[in-house]
């Protein structure tokens, strides 16, 4: 498909520079077939001089999680987290990232289809970060076995291989 952007908002194009591939990270979302993941790349600032490796990993996980929960722009067809879902906290222990999400997550309206697509995309995004192999999801600080009325088991860290 020939798709060419031939003009765009000058605000964004006056002073920006295109980040190199090394300065972007992939964010995955699940397409509306419920299975296929698509990737969007977002800009990621280089590590700062006073940013330790531990803090860096935390920052990347937090950034990626917020991006994954936000999803792609609204004009992109995608399975999305319930509106208002926020990342309250992100932490890393070993190779497991723990994401504390707001209770909005429980307002699932998309059945198994939506729930499966949401968590698949989130886990693929976070485990795409070097050093992270699993994601533990909390809701308002609590480890749940499943979401209310939900089907995905959440009481253990999730891996890519769960999908």
């Amino acid at each position: 498909m020939l798709l060419a952007i031939v003009a765009a908002g000058t605000w964004y194009y006056v002073s920006h520079r295109a980040p190199s591939a090394a300065e972007t990270i992939p964010i995955y979302y699940t397409k509306l077939d419920g299975k296929t993941l698509a990737e969007m790349r977002v800009s990621m600032r280089p590590r700062q001089a006073d940013e330790s490796a531990t803090e860096r990993l935390h920052n990347v996980v937090l950034y990626a999680a917020v991006q994954a929960i936000a999803g792609p722009p609204n004009d992109v067809q995608a399975i999305r987290f319930p509106p208002g879902t926020r990342v309250l906290d992100a932490s890393v222990k070993g190779s497991t990232a723990t994401l504390d999400l707001s209770k909005d997550l429980e307002r699932q309206a998309g059945g198994t289809f939506g729930e499966n697509g949401e968590f698949k995309a989130l886990v693929y995004t976070i485990t795409g970060i070097e050093g992270i192999a699993a994601v533990q999801v909390l809701v308002e600080g609590n480890r749940l076995e499943t979401l209310p009325g939900g089907n995905v088991e959440l009481d253990q860290p999730l891996h890519r291989s769960d999908w």
Partner: peptide, 17 residues
């Protein structure tokens, strides 16, 4: 997602910096 960072003039707005 607009990403600011303490101490860094660069900010990221989606795919651009």
């Amino acid at each position: 997602v607009v990403s600011f960072a303490i101490g860094d003039r660069r900010y990221d707005l989606g795919p651009i910096a």
